[in-house]
Amino acid sequence: MHKLYGDHQSGNCYKVELSGSLLNIPLAWVDVNILNNETAAPGFRAKNPNGKIPLLELDDGRCLWESNAIINFLAAGSSFLPTDAFTLAKVQQLQFFEQYSHEPYIAVARFIAKYLGLPDDRKADYDAKQQGGHKALKVMETQLAQTPFLVGDQATTADISLYAYTHVAHEGGFDLAEYPAIQAWLTRLEALPGYRAMGA
């Protein structure tokens, strides 16, 4: 069985948990406390020199890091990862969007509020994330007003990537009430066979 090193509150780790559940791939959970700096431990750094979670350790000892790389690996050969070159590129396009235009705003605002308790010395940083987060949500809303999932009629790893932090965006101060297409998309994903809630 593969081992997943992570934190149950982390959206990036949840992507992998959710993928395993949707794909019926069992993963052995290894809890890592990032606030206690456990990712800096030599044993962990030997597996991931970048010192971040999630980390997937395969049953043969090989390791993968970066959440979107991990979920694409798990989804290979399934309907969640297209084989058509253009459609696959669309999935990857959205995963790059998630990492560069979505997560730096929505996930970071959530981290400041949920993990750190919105301390006074981070309030300006938290406020600064709001505009960029709403810009990313508007991009998603535009697409999801046209198609049921982000790359068309079929759920892919692009949906998993963006679901993880979008469904808890309110924890970073983002009100999803103004995004009806996103709300409908969240409901569709939560109805998929094998869906697993964060922290479940």
Rank of each mutant, 00 (worst) to 15 (best):
V139D: 03
S161W: 02
E171S: 04
I182T: 13
P148S: 11
L186V: 12
A75M: 04
L118Y: 06
A124R: 02
D120E: 15
Q99P: 08
G152K: 09
Y115Q: 12
L81T: 00
V151S: 00
Y115K: 12
F111E: 05
I71A: 01
T83K: 14
L81C: 01
L116P: 01
S101L: 10
Q92Y: 08
L64F: 10
P148V: 04
A145E: 11
F96C: 04
Y179E: 06
L88E: 03
L118G: 06
H134S: 06
A184M: 05
I112D: 00
A177P: 01
G117H: 12
A181E: 06
Y165R: 12
A89F: 10
I70L: 10
I70P: 03
Q93R: 10
Y105S: 13
A155N: 04
E171D: 11
A113P: 08
G152L: 05
E178T: 10
L189W: 08
G172W: 14
G132R: 02
A158D: 05
K114G: 02
H102F: 09
L64H: 01
F86E: 13
G77R: 01
S78I: 00
L137Q: 12
L116M: 14
R188H: 06
Q183F: 01
L64I: 13
V151G: 00
A128P: 01
L137H: 05
A109D: 06
A136F: 06
H167L: 04
A145G: 14
Y179M: 09
M140A: 01
Q183I: 06
I160V: 15
P82L: 11
F86N: 07
Q99D: 02
A145Q: 12
